[in-house]
Every structure is written in C-alpha cells, then in structure tokens.
Design a protein around this nucleic acid. Structure first.
Lengths: 186, 186
DNA sequence: TCTAAGTGCAGCATTTAAGTTGCAGATAAC
DNA sequence: GTTATCTGCAACTTAAATGCTGCACTTAGA
C-alpha cells in the first residue's frame, strides 16, 4: 500500500473501497465478516476498525450512503414537477444506478430510527408521485392499495441485478415498460 | 411437553415445527441461530441437534421441503398440457402457497449439487411453459431474453410477502394481471 | 409393570467473529 | 531531516454459536 499517491488520498480511497465492497458483499451475504470485507477491499482488518467503531458503525455508514444516493435520485428526478412519464423513467434510471453501487437492503436496518425515518420520507415521496401518476392518467385507477408502491422498487431491484450488461437507460426502459404494460399481448 | 398426544405424534409435530419455524426465521434472517429457531419452535436446542447432525443438515431439510413443494406445485399446474392461461394462474397460486410455508431463498443453497439440479429442473420446466405462452399468443414476442423467467417468480414472491391477508387465489389474480398487463392504463 | 423413545436441562469443548492494541515501516507535509 | 499520519501485522480478549453428552423425567405400548 501507498506506493503511489499521497497518504491522505490513499486513506480516502481505502474508505470508499471498504464502503462499496462492504455494500456489495453484504448484499450477497448479510453475514459477511469484517475480515472478509477488508480482505476483498484490499485493506487490513484493523484498518476497518480504526475507521468504524464497530460492525454496526460500518453498516450504518453503508446504509447512510445508500439513503443519501436515493434522496439525490429522487431530487434529480423532480418527482413533484416533471411530467409523470419523464419523472418515472428518470427516477427508475437513477435508482438502478444507486442499486448497483449500494445494493444493500434497507429493510435490514429499520431498527435504526434515523434510517427508518429517512427511508419513510423517500417512500412517501414516491407514493405521492404514484398518486399523481394515477391522477394524470398514466396508471390505472382501482389498483390494489399500495401495490404500485411495492412493485416499482422490486422491478428496479430485479433489473439492477439481472441485467448488469445494460446501461441504466436501457434497463430503465425494461422496468418502465413492464411496470406500465406487463408482458402480455396488446 | 407431551401432556396430550403420543410420544411419536409429539416427535412428528416437533419436527415439523422446527422445519417450518426455521424456514420462516431463516427467511427473515439467514443468520438466525439454531437456539433462536428452537426457542421459537418451542423445543430445546438439543432436540434439534438430535434430529439434524448439523446446522447445514437442518438447512438442507428445509430446502428439500421447499423444492419438493415446488415440484408438486408444477406437477399440479400441468404446465405442459393445460391451457396456458389456466396453467399460469394455477402455477402462481400454488407457488404463493409454497412461498408462504417455505419462504427461504434457494439462491442461498446453490452450493449443494442436488439442490442446484433440482432447482434447475424446476426453472427449466417453467421456462418451457413460458415459451409455450409466447407461442400461443399469451405473451408478447421480442421480450428481453429471460425476462419473463425472472419476473414471474419475483412477482409471486412479492405478493406472497406483501399481501398476507389475501387468499392464494386473489393473490394470484394480482400477480397474473400485473404480469400480463402491468399497471398502466389500457 | 417394564421398556423404548423422546424430551428438557445443564454443562462442556471447539470454533469463529468482534473488537483492541502495540509496534514497525512508509510517506507527505513542515 | 523531523514529525504526523496512515498502514500492515501479530497478538491478544471477549462473546456467541456450534456440536456433543449424560441424567432425570414422561409417556406409549408390549
């Protein structure tokens, strides 16, 4: 380590590597050990413990990164003002990118109050958007309560994992098309 | 224990309780300990170890139960002979029931060769059925390769968890309708 | 009544991961 | 050149889960 670059730049790189590698490994196996994450990130186990007081602290940092990315994705999609069709596609595209960098499942961290409320706020924002989508005639009326709200993230999650070869735009095309029209004829 | 009923009947009940409780708890948290599963199932930790040589053995028994239920669900739906619309609904309905009893994710057990091949066979069966659904005009042509094949189980999984209040038939209605037509207007 | 099967309970050894710390080496900044 | 910072390495302690076993107790069935 530290053959090239500055000490501080290395430190920053290591921090990011631990976070993103941790996110990836914890998504694949929520029980992944700090040792295995550190090894995969190319740092020593003790280095991780010098940055994060505990395993839970590392998890919190990862979930925080995901939440921040989600909030940014929502803001960027302008869910409240943009035309619903445009906002939907952009939101999906953004979240696909988020899912690929921070694939961890927030459902596993709802014990933390901060995580819980930030997540609720994001969900609420999307729910409101979906209501607008109904009002403006993009989505059918009379759908099962909350169904759109759980279906959309699931489709995004699915395409994020199953279609790594597609860019976010193309992947979003599939999600939006499936979300609106399904796979049946006509 | 064993205030009512026979010793053997108790033993059978305990075995089933450990398996189903284990499936439920491991689905919620793959790292759930044998001790916590035993406690939830109302038996002693040692009883679990008398029936299963190891933790892995217990997991194998649970995955085996799920696989068997899936195979039964496929057979019962008559995916090869029944009209595609009928077979689809019946398959979905059956798998919803399977998911509710054995919610564990098989993806976590693909190390085991037997599990892997049995799962592959089941997936292949459904894939073939989906091809027939395209041939017979139920599904669109030109869909992304393998997309229907991963979407359908995901929808079933989603509705199994998110709509516990619905019977398998009604839940299957939602899945099939979403699968074929999405949530958009017309 | 006697036996076999099953169970809870308590205790044990082993393993694994978490978390901590001291030391020496490397490098950027001064 | 000196110092402060970051690192890997190695050596702990502690906590928790796995896996095993002996003992007493209960009950069904011979």
């Amino acid at each position: 380590m530290t053959r090239l670059g500055t000490v501080r730049a290395d430190a920053a790189r290591n921090l990011e590597a631990v976070l993103t590698t941790g996110a990836r490994m914890l998504a694949a196996d929520p029980g992944a050990s700090i040792a295995s994450i550190a090894a995969e990130a190319g740092v020593d186990r003790s280095t991780v413990y010098r940055r994060f007081a505990s395993r839970e602290d590392l998890l919190a940092a990862i979930y925080d990164a995901r939440l921040t990315a989600i909030e940014q994705a929502i803001t960027d999609a302008r869910l409240r003002e943009a035309p619903v069709a445009v906002a939907l596609h952009r939101y999906v595209e953004n979240i696909i990118t988020v899912n690929r960098t921070w694939p961890v499942d927030l459902g596993r961290m709802l014990a933390d109050d901060t995580v819980h409320s930030r997540r609720d706020a994001a969900v609420q924002e999307v729910d409101t958007f979906l209501e607008r989508a109904v009002d403006e005639g993009l989505l059918r009326t009379g759908l099962p309560e909350g169904w759109a709200s759980v279906l959309l993230p699931q489709l995004v999650h699915l395409v994020s994992r199953q279609r790594p070869e597609l860019g976010p735009g193309q992947a979003a095309d599939i999600v939006v098309n499936t979300f609106l029209h399904g796979l049946g004829v006509s």
